[in-house]
């Protein structure tokens, strides 16, 4: 978000806090009305206008996903549901619509996943957007309090109690902090993208002259590995690797 967008957003929020609903909410409401009236293209325009402000809200991405889904664009729908999921990983509606949209696709993602990946996904869905950070805070602050008591209290009984509490809480703090660090590392290295073209051929190199390795279709989620000019190297869910034109995919 650049500084101008920040200023605009700040002004909107400041003005919004005075009234019951700000201009962003009014625009959101107008988009919802357009959707309800069957004007899905109009609704899409309004949702996109909200995103232009730089506001990152899962509700906007979710409703935008619905608007483009109704227009028969599963690739765009999946892209927006994925963006909503990043902001609200435990949102059941987002998960349902994402899964429903994927069922409409030509290409199926590999079903078999490693149990560690499943466990990680389950953890993220359990804690949501910031739950793990809050959890760490809720354990860490009492731990620090216990450490402080252990250091500072003169009464021997209280000191022993504080020492015991410190040990117990440290056992919890270490994994909570570790999971937060792991999540940060995974999310910063995630380079997921969605195929936007109805059909695109994956080639062995970043050029039209290279032989075709596979054909994939709109809506498939891929991982971007490298970029070279107008081409990106992607990894498919089933492990296939190839080059696609940059314009055929959009980063989540």
């Amino acid at each position: 978000m650049n500084w101008r967008a920040r200023v605009v957003l700040a002004l909107i929020f400041v003005s919004g806090s005075a009234a019951s609903a700000g201009p962003v909410e009014e625009r959101f409401e107008a988009a919802n009305r357009a959707y309800e009236g069957g004007d899905f293209a109009g609704a899409e325009r309004e949702y996109r206008a909200i995103l232009e402000y730089g506001l990152q809200a899962p509700e906007v991405y979710y409703n935008l996903g619905n608007a483009v889904f109704r227009q028969g664009r599963p690739g765009q729908a999946i892209l927006n549901y994925e963006r909503a999921l990043r902001l609200a990983p435990a949102d059941e509606d987002v998960l349902f619509n994402l899964e429903y949209s994927r069922e409409q696709l030509v290409d199926r993602e590999a079903a078999a996943r490693h149990w560690i990946a499943d466990a990680y996904t389950g953890w993220i869905r359990l804690v949501g957007f910031d739950g793990d950070a809050w959890l760490l805070l809720w354990i860490y602050l009492p731990t620090m309090a216990a450490v402080g008591a252990w250091i500072g209290v003169r009464d021997e009984r209280l000191r022993r109690l504080a020492r015991f509490a410190t040990i117990v809480l440290l056992v919890l703090v270490v994994p909570a902090g570790g999971l937060l660090v792991v999540r940060g590392s995974i999310e910063s290295s995630d380079r997921g993208a969605i195929v936007m073209d109805e059909k695109v051929q994956g080639r062995s190199g970043p050029d039209e002259g290279h032989p075709t390795l596979f054909t994939i279709h709109e809506g498939l989620k891929v991982q971007v590995r490298k970029e070279s000019g107008e081409w990106v190297q992607v990894l498919l869910p089933n492990g296939l690797n190839g080059w696609l034109p940059s314009s055929s995919v959009e980063r989540i």
Binding site: N32, E59, A88
Partner: peptide, 13 residues
Amino acid sequence: HLRPTPEQLMDRS
């Protein structure tokens, strides 16, 4: 279905 309009859209950037 759509998410109804909340009282305030929270930025989660």
